[in-house]
Amino acid sequence: MDEAQELAVLRLLTEVCGTDAIDQERDVDLFDAGLLDSLGFTHLLVGLEDDLGIRVPPTAVERDEVSTVNRILTFVSERL
């Protein structure tokens, strides 16, 4: 993943979570933190498709795979 792609993911997460604090604390569980819920999660997937061309149906991913910023970055880099 290049820098521009990482920035795109972080921008998307900031939008979905509603705060840029996620950038600084990348191992906080976003579901535990109440920043990501089922609806936010589906918005995230839609955004990944729109911004990065990664198509992941919501039924093909479990939330543990995408529960922190670092996990989401790994998840995305594996699919680029």
Partner: peptide, 12 residues
């Protein structure tokens, strides 16, 4: 702690 960790603890 960071704002996220602090907020998470308060929410908990």
């Amino acid at each position: 702690g960071g704002p996220l960790a602090v907020a998470t603890a308060l929410k908990k």
